[in-house]
């Protein structure tokens, strides 16, 4: 894929966001005034971008209403992010060694491949009911773990297996032992793939956490916030929450890409 870069590219990016927002606003206004409606959809009930914006700003921080209070979106974002980072770290610590072992050793590959192949086809959401009754706490972290660990394992395996055999030969002739080859050739060569796995995994984990928080009830978390606002009929806040999820996922993805470019600058 080829993207426009530089100023022109940025301009088109911004323009597309503006047009999207405008179309959204116009469609809802038209439906509310009975001028035009898409059949079978209650467009009039969708909050407009302007309403969503005010809802976002209004619910950004914790508010106190007499004895009760509601957490601000900031708190929900923080709670969800912490869960994703915790689940992600555990997944990284387990996924990378497993991927290296399975990718490098034929024996370990044969041993673990069937298990990995079966489990990775169970979506993180399918684990939610189980995690509710086996985990006293931290069930949603486990759901994130399931979402992150398989992209990491699979990409690590792929990275390890695509290590240039000439580099391994070169290391051998330079006197490297088997463990040195893994440490000094296989792992560095797999690093870009491992980072890609982490990036894809965190994307999946971020989606999984929202679903998990909707089901595993906890008082904070973006998934909980969206579900709760939907329940209360506060659709503007609900949509604002959805947009926050999208924007944060986007920022996470770009941050890791930038980190990757900064630290793995040797890739052609």
């Amino acid at each position: 894929m080829k993207f426009e870069t530089g100023k022109r590219g940025l301009l088109i990016n911004i323009l597309s966001l503006i047009v999207f927002t405008l179309v959204w606003q116009i469609l809802v206004i038209l439906a509310r005034n009975d001028i035009f409606n898409i059949p079978f959809i209650r467009l009039r009930d969708i909050p407009t971008p302007v309403e969503t914006w005010y809802a976002l700003v209004g619910s950004m921080f914790t508010r106190i209403y007499g004895p009760s209070f509601t957490y601000g979106i900031i708190n929900h974002v923080y709670a969800s992010l912490v869960r994703v980072i915790e689940g992600g770290i555990i997944a990284f610590i387990i996924g990378v060694p497993v991927g290296i072992g399975v990718g490098y050793s034929k024996f370990l590959g044969n041993l673990f491949n069937p298990i990995i192949e079966i489990i990775r086809n169970m979506p993180p959401m399918a684990w939610i009911p189980l995690s509710i009754f086996i985990f006293v706490s931290g069930g949603s972290i486990f759901i994130v773990f399931i979402g992150v660990v398989f992209p990491i394992i699979l990409n690590t395996i792929q990275g390890v297996r695509s290590t240039d055999t000439r580099l391994i030969d070169a290391a051998k002739t330079l006197g490297a032992s088997e463990s040195m080859i893994v440490k000094k050739v296989v792992i560095p060569s797999a690093l870009p793939s491992i980072m890609t796995g982490l990036r894809i995994g965190l994307g999946v984990g971020w989606m999984a956490i929202v679903a998990a928080e909707m089901v595993i009830k906890s008082p904070v978390g973006l998934g909980y916030f969206i579900w709760n606002m939907g329940d209360l009929g506060r659709y503007s806040e609900m949509v604002a929450g959805m947009i926050v999820i999208g924007v944060i996922g986007y920022i996470m993805n770009i941050s890791i890409l930038l980190l990757q470019r900064r630290f793995i600058n040797w890739v052609d």
Partner: peptide, 27 residues
């Protein structure tokens, strides 16, 4: 034996200096 490869087979994540130091390092 020292082996010199047709397509160089340098470690792309290592600088010139680090590539040359690979052998002494693993020793």
């Amino acid at each position: 034996c020292g082996f010199v490869f047709q397509e160089y087979a340098l470690f792309p994540w290592r600088t010139v200096k680090e590539n040359i130091e690979f052998g002494p390092q693993v020793k």
